[in-house]
Design a protein around this nucleic acid. Structure first.
Length: 322
RNA sequence: GGCUUGGUAGCUCAGUUGGUAGAGCAGAGGACUGAAAAUCCUUGUGUCGGCGGUUCAAUUCCGUCUCAAGCCA
């Protein structure tokens, strides 16, 4: 545990204003920001990804933002490794505000990812092919049950993605997720830094309104134009293009939906995304929630207390060790 | 004014040869270890437009009124 590198997770659903909070906090406590949003990791996407403006980026150093170029894709594993690198290179005494809405990535950095042999392209193609065959999902699910009944029981037949991933791991490593996880749990080390988790929270109706407003704003700022340019560059199949805002705009550019439908679909899909994010984060009882509209000062006080508690301790340690 | 076609779940619509109804979407809840803004699961009572009539029984048949769209005057 490195007590001189405090980490503050600023979490929450999309459009809750967590980025603004993180920006203010990082300025006040002379910290840095590490992005933890799977879409904002990517370069080239700007408006639909709701990235900070160039002016905002001037205020505080940002890391792991806009750093994955096409055709590369970000994964929880790669993000986890990149996060460790950022933390290793960070000077001591600088608080890191990790902000984003991707619960899976937060989990990856906090709990760690079990080490896995890279699954070959041929293997992925083969498994995908088998899944697509009639009755394929049932057969592969049965194969999964043979090797790893515990994991198989948690996966629905319709969840082809997870069945495929489970089979890929079994065929490349010779063991199932449950065993891999168990072995990892025995050797893994806890999160290496002092950690505080906070997040802004809104009433459902208010967040709904904020999402609608933000969608209007994105379209006004030129989301359609941005998507047309990305399509011109041949990036339609690139991972961030299937995220909310981009996938719908592609439908519009292709003429499948009109502008009213575009607005409506982005708003609806964003709301559903926000709900999924909320479901994820509400499971973590360590997160301190504050009122999105009026809770900033309260949140800041909690952060301050957290940071102070560390400096008192470390100065005592230093005095003792010198 | 006449004719035609419609009026069924928040929306789009199925359906009941008469035994009071069901899909998709939306909404609500949930899962989640290298695609995660992804992927997946659970969840459907609504005067079947109003009022009468026929019938053991009408949302379904008949009459009438009403609303909407279209056509003809």
């Amino acid at each position: 545990m490195n007590k001189n590198k405090p980490v503050i997770f600023v979490v929450g659903s999309t459009a809750t204003g967590k980025s603004e909070w993180a920006l203010k906090l990082a300025q006040e406590f002379k910290g840095i920001i590490i992005n933890c949003d799977s879409v904002q990791c990517y370069s080239k996407v700007q408006i639909g990804a709701a990235k900070p403006t160039p002016e905002e980026l001037q205020l505080v150093p940002h890391y792991l933002l806009s750093y994955v170029d096409p055709p590369s894709e970000s994964t929880a594993g790669s993000y986890c490794r990149d996060f460790s690198e950022v933390m290793n290179n960070l000077p001591e005494g600088v608080p890191a505000f990790v902000v984003g809405g991707t619960g899976f990535y937060f989990m990856a950095i906090e709990k760690g990812m079990y080490p896995v042999t890279e699954v070959s392209e041929e293997m992925k193609v083969q498994v995908a092919k088998e899944l697509a065959e009639p009755g394929g999902a049932e057969r592969l699910h049965a194969e999964l049950t043979q090797v790893d009944p515990e994991y198989a029981a948690k996966i629905n037949i319709a969840d082809h993605y997870r069945i495929g991933r489970g089979i890929e791991l079994i065929r490349t490593q010779g063991k199932g997720v449950t065993q891999i996880q168990k072995e990892f749990d025995e050797t893994k080390t806890p999160f290496a830094f002092p950690l505080l988790k906070i997040g802004p929270n809104w009433e459902r109706e208010v967040l709904r309104e904020r999402i609608a407003l933000r969608t209007h704003k994105m379209l006004k700022e030129g989301l359609i134009d941005e998507v047309e340019k990305l399509l011109d560059q041949g990036l339609e199949g690139w991972a961030p293009m299937s995220s909310v805002g981009y996938k719908e705009t592609i439908e519009f550019v292709k003429g499948h939906i009109n502008e009213d439908e575009l607005l409506e679909q982005i708003t609806t899909n964003t709301r559903q995304l926000a709900k999924r994010q909320k479901t994820w984060f509400q499971r973590d009882k360590d997160i301190h929630w504050f009122d999105g509209a009026r809770g900033y000062l309260e949140a800041r006080a909690v952060v301050e207390k957290f940071l102070n508690s560390l400096t008192t301790n470390t100065s005592a340690d230093k005095n003792g060790s010198i």
